[in-house]
Design a protein around this nucleic acid. Structure first.
Lengths: 199, 199
DNA sequence: GTCTATAGGCAGATAGAC
DNA sequence: GTCTATCTGCCTATAGAC
């Protein structure tokens, strides 16, 4: 049973991983409907046919993209919980995850896909909705924790408050990117968090 | 000088107006990159060639769309100011404008275009940025009014607070639409406004 | 696994008749 | 103003050689 590195989830080859990396960036910058197999192939100096070997169609590539993105996000949230104990710090770290994406001149992958939602293959639609639900669930838990220990203060339910934070951060990315102004995002993010950290 | 109806801004023919109506809905639902001249033509039972007579290219059609949308929004904001005096009511009416769009299962036109920003023709990009700036300016003015007369309470500058409200409402639309859940939007909207109406 | 070659469709756009 | 007809290019996808 000498397993080398413990293949965490479905392991893909090196080429498949690089395809996902390039496609992910293209989708986050331009959108799922505005990138093509040709774009990815030319960046990697391979042919479109090779792409189809790794991902039969655009729908399958899209599913793989959102699945991997959601898994990574879940890992990041677990790391936040492991590394930080108090609710306010955890909220700060959560917002920082968004900021890191925007600094790269990208939109949140699932925020981008949310705008294209009616045009997506059904499996991608389901995965996008799940992403937001998972985020809200995690945030609601942190908010509940903070309310219980007195470090956070808010009137609506933790779930409703979580939804406001997710919406606010996604919207802040959406609006800040056309302005090319990361500070716009940071300002909104701190106001959102201040709404639950101050009495 | 017997002008019939006072051609408010650039008047377009009846057909051109119907083209804009159909194209506007398609962009708000599917996005600028995911609708085609063929889509519009088939809905109106005309040919693509006829479309090109009214709007030479997709870029020009897109410009006309965002220009008209921004003008209508500005009219709506003026109507809000004319019809309501106090700042809290004006904020409520502002959020209601967004809700009306979402009820139609549409995204804000400029929110949709913001997600596609890097792929848009430059004139459309400029118009999208201007739309958000105009919204923020209007909101900041209302916020200042409310702060001065004691009906609103917030710590950051009116401009920064305005940006948080715009971002929050746009993000709430973005996230609510995939869930098919208008209540999600309303919940976030009232939380955002509660943040400035309660002490 | 990656290639060449190609199929089949749809995109935006134009010419010219009516 | 609207039509038919057509162009060119890009899209996703497949077949089959290496």
């Amino acid at each position: 049973m000498a397993s080398k590195v413990k293949a965490s989830q479905q392991d893909r080859g090196e080429t498949a991983t690089r395809i996902l990396d390039v496609a992910e960036r293209l989708v986050q910058v331009r959108g799922f409907n505005a990138f093509s197999y040709a774009d990815v192939a030319s960046e990697l100096n391979i042919t479109k046919a090779a792409l189809h070997y790794h991902f039969p169609g655009k729908a399958e590539l899209g599913q793989a993209l959102v699945t991997r993105y959601a898994a990574r996000f879940a890992e990041a949230l677990a790391a936040v919980e492991a590394g930080l104990d108090d609710a306010p710090s955890r909220l700060d770290a959560y917002a920082q995850l968004y900021l890191d994406v925007l600094r790269d001149e990208r939109m949140c992958l699932c925020g981008m896909l949310a705008s294209e939602y009616p045009t997506l293959p059904p499996p991608m639609q389901d995965a996008v909705v799940r992403f937001f639900e998972d985020n809200e669930t995690w945030l609601a838990r942190v908010l509940r924790q903070g309310k219980d220990d007195g470090t956070l203060h808010f009137a609506p339910s933790p779930t409703e408050t979580a939804r406001m934070i997710v919406s606010g951060l996604e919207g802040a990315m959406l609006v800040a990117r056309p302005h090319g102004d990361v500070a716009r995002f940071s300002s909104v993010a701190s106001q959102l968090l201040a709404g639950v950290t101050s009495a």
